[in-house]
Computed example of a mutant assay.
Amino acid sequence: MKKKLISLAVAGALAVPMTVSAQGTHVTLFGSVQAEYATVNRENQSSQALIGDDTGRSRMGMHVTENLGGGFKAKAHVEYGFNTGAGALGVARERWVALANDSWGEVKFGRVQSPFKDFAGGMTIDPFAYTTLQAGGSGGTMMASANGYGSGAQGFVNSAVRYDSPKVEGFSFSGLLMPGDANRLDPANTIIATSTFQGSQSNAGGEDGEWDFQLAGKYDAQWQGHNFAVFGGYSRDNVSTRQRTVGFRNNEHVWRGGGSWNYQQFTLSGQYERITNAVGAATCTNAAALGNPATGLPDTRGQCNSAMNVGGDGNIWFASGKYDWGNTSFIAQGGQTHAHGVIGAAQSRQVSSFTVGAIHNLSKRSSLFGGYQRAMVSDKNATFQDSDTWSLGMRHNF
């Protein structure tokens, strides 16, 4: 009996600090697990198929909120992604701390998503976001970079600060800044023996930062059962000193505009982007092409149809329609990318695509999805070819 009382006393003593530290703090564990059978058939190549999740949906993480009083809150967020079809433990997604206030909004510090991804258009208007059928990436026609300044599924920005305003009379805006104007890559100034530049590639806002920034705003309104939203944004990726030495001359500029309309079961949405002097955000990356970000190796399943030629201009438009019938959503969407050629280098390229499919909700947390996507490329070359994509998958959120 005494042993039991001692055990209970010890357990109670250990539990007291945890209870105190939990006062005013709310911790949420969350995640999502997805697997799909996806096959990509590119012209003049053998079919490439997998069972897994290389578009970045599967994740797990922790979100912490502490009430500081006076309308202020402190927040922390840690999130990791993984591929259900591979054995790797996971890759870093968002990791930040934030200070929020009910009146003036929220400021995040750390590794964050860009406003072009989760605030104004981008992944927010694509029903097939985070699947092989998504509008960004292999067969799609929305900007699909992996470095964070586009709307790609695996896009995150290191060493950044982001502000999101509260909604006032339907208006809200968001801004992101990645600071850094150094001529070296890392404040540690570690010498790289194989490079003429000092520094090591890190997450510091160094030479590749150059005070890059992004701004976006949107307006939401309701009228007699109709829901309207319009948005716009500007993204600037400044050319660094190192990039100038290898031929880059001008900063990258991306202008975006779009909107959506919803009435009962119908939803229509779309966006348009104008890109000039593509440097990083609008050019091709392995992750955007369904590559393997862990190894950096190219993946022959995908191609960057939505990417601009390095140093070139272009434009992209995308439109989507969705009809909800009970627990099932039927989707039809598509668009076009026009990448202008670069003198003495890459040729111009135009890609048109369309996607049809459905998402069926088994519950509030589980769903099935599937469909077909066709990409048609003009000015074909060895890299870009017509392609057909089929997908069937399942997702569970927790």
Results as ranks from 00 to 15, higher is better:
N309P: 06
T328I: 01
G321F: 04
S329H: 04
G280F: 02
T300W: 04
T285F: 08
A278S: 10
D313F: 08
Q265V: 09
T300M: 13
G257P: 04
N315D: 14
A294W: 09
T285H: 09
Q333Y: 06
L268A: 15
G258Y: 06
A294Q: 13
I275D: 01
G258F: 08
V310W: 05
N286Y: 11
D313R: 05
D313H: 12
Y263L: 14
W261V: 01
A294K: 04
D324K: 08
R301T: 10
T276V: 12
T285L: 02
G258M: 04
W261E: 07
V254Q: 11
V310K: 10
C304R: 12
A288S: 14
S320Q: 09
N327D: 11
I331Q: 01
A288W: 01
Q303V: 03
R256E: 11
A282P: 02
L290D: 05
G312N: 08
W325I: 12
V279E: 03
Q264K: 15
G302Q: 08
G326Y: 03
N315W: 10
K322G: 03
R301W: 02
W255M: 15
G314N: 13
V279Q: 02
Y263E: 09
S306P: 10
N277P: 00
Y323L: 06
G326A: 07
I331T: 05
F318T: 04
D313P: 10
G258Q: 07
Y323N: 10
C284L: 03
A282G: 01
A287F: 05
Q264H: 14
Y263C: 06
T283F: 03
A281H: 03
A287W: 04
Q333P: 11
G302N: 03
G312S: 10
N262L: 11
P293T: 06
T328A: 12
S329D: 11
A278G: 10
S260F: 02
L290T: 04
W325P: 01
P293K: 13
T267F: 05
L297D: 04
N262E: 14
T328C: 02
G259W: 05
I331S: 01
F266H: 15
L290S: 07
S260Y: 01
Q264S: 13
Q265I: 11
W255T: 08
V310C: 00
W261K: 00
W317T: 08
D313V: 13
K322N: 11
G258H: 05
R301P: 07
Q303P: 00
W255L: 14
F330H: 03
A332W: 04
W255Y: 12
Q333V: 05
I275Q: 07
W317P: 02
Q271T: 09
Y323G: 08
Q271L: 11
F318C: 05
T295Q: 09
W317H: 09
N327F: 02
W261G: 00
T328V: 06
S306H: 13
Q265C: 07
N277I: 00
R274Q: 14
A307N: 12
R274Y: 15
S306E: 12
T267S: 13
S320D: 15
F318N: 05
V279N: 01
A294Y: 15
